[in-house]
Design a protein around this nucleic acid. Sequence first.
DNA 1: TGTGGTATCGATACCGGTATCGTGATCAGT
DNA 2: ACTGATCACGATACCGGTATCGATACCACA
Lengths: 336, 336
Amino acid sequence: MKSKKTLQDVAAAAGVSKMTASRALRGDKDVSSTNIQKVRKAAREIGYFGNHLAASLSSKRSDLIGVVVPSLSNIVFPQVMSGVTNALVGTGFQPVFGVTDYDPNKENEILRNMLSWRPGGLIVTGLDQPEETRKLLLDADVPIVQIMDVDGTPVDSCVGFSHAKAGQDMATAILAAGRKRIAYAGCNIDKDTRAQKRRRGFVDTLNQHGQTLVTEKIADGLSSVAAGRQLAKDLSEHHPDLDCIYFSNDDLAIGGLSYCIDAGIAVPKTMVLVGFNGLELLDAFPGKVVTSRTSRQEIGETAANLILASLKGARSADPVTTVIEPEVLLGDLKPK
Amino acid sequence: MKSKKTLQDVAAAAGVSKMTASRALRGDKDVSSTNIQKVRKAAREIGYFGNHLAASLSSKRSDLIGVVVPSLSNIVFPQVMSGVTNALVGTGFQPVFGVTDYDPNKENEILRNMLSWRPGGLIVTGLDQPEETRKLLLDADVPIVQIMDVDGTPVDSCVGFSHAKAGQDMATAILAAGRKRIAYAGCNIDKDTRAQKRRRGFVDTLNQHGQTLVTEKIADGLSSVAAGRQLAKDLSEHHPDLDCIYFSNDDLAIGGLSYCIDAGIAVPKTMVLVGFNGLELLDAFPGKVVTSRTSRQEIGETAANLILASLKGARSADPVTTVIEPEVLLGDLKPK
DNA sequence: TGTGGTATCGATACCGGTATCGTGATCAGT
DNA sequence: ACTGATCACGATACCGGTATCGATACCACA
């Protein structure tokens, strides 16, 4: 049992040629049912499982789909990955995940590495890759789907939504609710370009209505509930007259909510807390946090399906951009 | 730029043989510094990146580390994956993730698939694989680390903690706090064997102290905040005299907390809510939920490092079992 | 000058599959 | 019985690298 079994061993055990064994195991045509049985039996008995390395090298294609996400510290990207995985189940394709930590250099390195495995396709988060990485993708000659954003020029296909618009829509909703003393609270701002786009959309819309942010505060490190709690504390202590905090995501907003609850600040009456993503977690606080619900699973599934379609369609299908619009959830916040 | 560049192309461009180019790019010995420069330059200029398929096939080893987790719907396993990724950064090894959805058949299939890529090592969640899968792993001849559990017999090495003991410890703590009317609330019970082990440890310890569960309730589907909220509602409506609910994890417990807050039930005074994992999310509710803090990142990192050590040590190192004990966090619960 | 050692390189043989094409056998139709 | 088509199968040539070993050049030293 120790020695690696090769197709040759299976063939020998089944009394046929390597080629026939190969065909039989892959369900190719041109094999008699007798031999199919024999080969399958032999493979099972000697404990054979294929060698994807050799198979992919020989056939010049692999059934790997590379998926590159910036972070695992927040449930959002695991959910995207989950969507990809679901869409790929039963197709014979297997996802391979890479994590960039929002580092463009690491992203480039990961993509190079993935491409060297000759994947069937690539799913990459975001549209804002540096020029060098972009070129890498353009030259790659595999279907590529960029996800989670549509504000920019995709390399190939694209599934997501406009963060700029999400920020604008939220600002409109907040203004409609009559809020005037608004702060921004974020994390990791220079690295997460999508959060930046939301912020910009939000601020621009405020400005267009003659308003400005009262203040803003950016915490170091990754977003977390604890960071949000601290941000809310700092902001409301320095600016007791705030009536709304726009957080860069739900994790922070929930931290803010936890602070407000403890500090006896009425939410959303006295203070509106705005997040982003619409995490299921918010079910624990019905109506409290204003947010935009994004469909992470659906984005992952759609991206994977685009890859599959493009792979099935032999020649590279035309690039598609699919927008999966977030839904603004106002919760208990009633427009005046 | 379109045509795939091969090592041969690089060699030609650099005016050396394929073999010299190969050595130069891998930093092997026996290459003059002149040629190293020439080859590197040529590779950069024609946009060459290697072919891991060919390299791994030829060298009979790949730098892939397979990581199999049961779920992505909860932040716990992404954090483990994150730990693995961190430990692997800069080592030249790349993690490949698979998700089983707690389905043993899917797990077997994923493992077969991974093994067919001849990975350098395998990290697998849990010790309770069916016999057939266990045999697959035993015959695999790659370093294997099973994680998140130590209650059982590992195939090779193992990193985690005893869920039975975690359940026992928690029961001891709850009894010490004087709680007598205790319910169990879980999800997905038949599939998550580790949650089962905790439950059993918990119940056994209650019994040893002459107590029994007042009731228990299992929700269908995956654990979630919403499910926990509903479980808490059902349990406390049917059993108004409960003074403690032992949830199978923190997600459910937080849902329970959210119900209690809305229902005006004092936590932990009137009702003790117990979870498991010690998610960072609990920072939003300081002191409210009793839980056991597990070190997911650390488990992932340790597992990856074990694989690396075993790979570096040429011959398979002796199996190691590393216990990373969870810490019981009682929060505001004071023993009477 | 002869000898041995070291540094550098290339020819060749694989790694374990798959693509391709050719061969013999079987069978229907005339 | 002969022809052409279809079926089943195997021999052979790769896929794009790496391992191995032998060849060459250069140098130190006897």
